[in-house]
Design a protein around this nucleic acid. Sequence first.
DNA 1: TTTATTGTTCTATTATTTAGAACTTTAAAT
DNA 2: ATTTAAAGTTCTAAATAATAGAACAATAAA
Lengths: 301, 301
Amino acid sequence: MNQIEDMQTFVRIVEAGSITRAAEQLNTVKSAVSRRLSQLEKRLGVSLLTRTTRHHTLTEHGQSYYQQSLRIIEEVAVIEASLLQENCALSGRIRISAPLVFGIEHLSQAFLAFNELHPDIIFDVDFDDKKIDLVEGGYDLAIRIAKLEDSNLIARKITSTRMVLCASQKYLKEYGTPVVPQDLTTKHKKLLYNKAHETWHFIDDKAKSVSIKLPTALTSNNGNFLLESAIKGGGLLNVPDFICYKAIKQGKLQLVLNNYLVHTTIPIYALYPQNRHLSHRIRRLVDFLVEYYGDKPYWLI
Amino acid sequence: MNQIEDMQTFVRIVEAGSITRAAEQLNTVKSAVSRRLSQLEKRLGVSLLTRTTRHHTLTEHGQSYYQQSLRIIEEVAVIEASLLQENCALSGRIRISAPLVFGIEHLSQAFLAFNELHPDIIFDVDFDDKKIDLVEGGYDLAIRIAKLEDSNLIARKITSTRMVLCASQKYLKEYGTPVVPQDLTTKHKKLLYNKAHETWHFIDDKAKSVSIKLPTALTSNNGNFLLESAIKGGGLLNVPDFICYKAIKQGKLQLVLNNYLVHTTIPIYALYPQNRHLSHRIRRLVDFLVEYYGDKPYWLI
DNA sequence: TTTATTGTTCTATTATTTAGAACTTTAAAT
DNA sequence: ATTTAAAGTTCTAAATAATAGAACAATAAA
C-alpha cells in the first residue's frame, strides 16, 4: 500500500484527462496505471471517477480526494525538501516542454551540460511549439520564447533574443542591397516566421519612424526551414538572432539595415506550475540556465 | 519509494525506542526495519538518528522529520477515513494491550465474536497486567480495569465490575459462616488480590459503617490463582465479580455478607492514544465491546 | 573479560509490480 | 448502419522490490 504514489497517480490521471496519457507522463504503461487506480478504489471502497472509453468525470469522492491529494503531495515534498542538503547530488526525472528550434539548437546543449554535473537527472523533453498546458501535460518546466501572457504559471526570465534582418549575398545581388529603409520597395520579399513580425519598423536618418510590410515569399513555423530558404536566396529574413547567428558568422547571411532596424527584444522564460514549493532540482536547473545563457548569450550579434 | 510507509516506520522506531521493538510492533523483522531506515536516510541525504547498540538519539533533522511525519500520517488517515464507507468491511491489524485474567476469560470471546463479523481484522493482543505506554508500545487500544488516572489518553467506559466477597463451603464449615460483619474476627483470613482492597467496608444492621482488615493468607496478582485457592478453602475472597461469577453459579463458592458489603464498582475502560482522528476499525471495535458487555454484563451477580 | 542485546549486512525466498498482448467498449467517421 | 480508432481492462510472464532468517559486528552491562 503506497498511499503517496496512489495519490500521485490519481492526480496525474485527473490532470492528464485519461489513463493512457497519465501512463505516458508517468513513464509507464496504461495497464499499470489502470490497475493502480482500480486497486486504490478498491482499497478506499469508493469510486473516484466514472469512466467511459472517451470521457472521465470525477465523482464527489474523487473531487475531494483529488484536492486533498494535491495538498498532501505538496506537503510531503516540502518536508523532504527541507531536509535535503543544498549541495547534494540531484536526481530524478525532469519533464520539460520546449520550443522546437530553440530547444534542439540551444537547450539540448545546456541540458547535456547540466546532466554532466548531475548524472542522475533524467531529462524528458518534449519539443513542441504548441502552447502546452503544463499541468495537464504533467510538465515540471516549460521554456517559452514570447512576451509573458497572463497565466497561473510562475515565470523566470532566463535570457532573451533580438529580431534581426538578414539575407544571403545571392539574394542581395539579385534584388539589390538596401542602404536606407526606403530602399525596401515591394520588389523585395520576405520570409515570414510569425505573423507578429509581418511589419518591420525602422528609424531613418532623420530620426523618423518607418514601417514597412513586404510581400511574403514563404511562411513557415520552422525557423530552420526559413533559414535554409534565406541562405538559398529566398528572401529577406527577420528572425530571432539565435536562429541565424551562426549563418551570419559563417558569412552565409549578412545583416541588412542593422543600424536602422528597431530590434524587438523577446524574452525567453522558464515557466513552472504555481506550487508553493518549487522542487529543488527544477530550481537548480533554472539557475543553471540563467547562468548558462546570461544577459549576453553567445548568439548575440 | 514509499514515503508514507517510511514515515510510519520512522515514527515507530522513534516511539518504540529501538529498531528491534519497532520491528516487533510492525510485525516484521529488524533487518527489514533497519534497511528501511537506512534507505530513508540515504534518500533524504541526512542522518535522522544517531544510533549505538543501546541508545538512539534523534538528530535535529530527525526531530523535525518525526514531527512532520506524525502530522502527515494523521492527515492521510483522515483523508482516507473520510472516503471509507461507514458500512464497508473492516480490515487490518489491531494491536491491543489487555489485562491478563479479564483478557483471556472475557475479552478473547468478544474479540472472536467481532472477528466473525469482520474476518479481515487481525487481532494482535498482548495480555499483560503491567501498565503499558500505549504510544511507546505502538498499541491502537488498551483495556484497563481501574479508576481513570490523568493521562494523555482518551478513555471510553465499556462496562464495569463489582467487588464481591465469597468463600467455599469447605472454608465456611471450618471457619464459620459470618452472618453480620462483626462475625469477621481475626480468626478469618483473606486471599488478597490487590493492596487497594485490603480493607473491606460494610454497612451493618444499624446503618453503621464497619471497616475490617483481616490477616492475609495469600497474595497474588493473578485472579485465577486466588480463585482456585478460595475454592480449595484457602480463605475469604474479595475480587471483581468477573473472576468469581462462574464459580458462584456452579456452587463452588458462595457469597458472604453480600447484603452488608459496600460493593466497590470498578469501571472497565478502553483507552487509545490521543489522535485527532480515531481509526474507523478501532471505533467500531470499541462500539462493539460496549454493546457486547453493556450496563449489566453477564458476570453480574 | 564475558555475556547479552542491539543493529547491520548478506542472500535465498517471497511478494509485488510492470510490460506487453489480447480483448472489450464506445464515440466518431464513413 | 457499419466501420474505424482510441481508450480502458484483464491476463500472464518477466522484472523488480521487499522480506525473513542467519551470520556478523559493536557495545553496554554483568
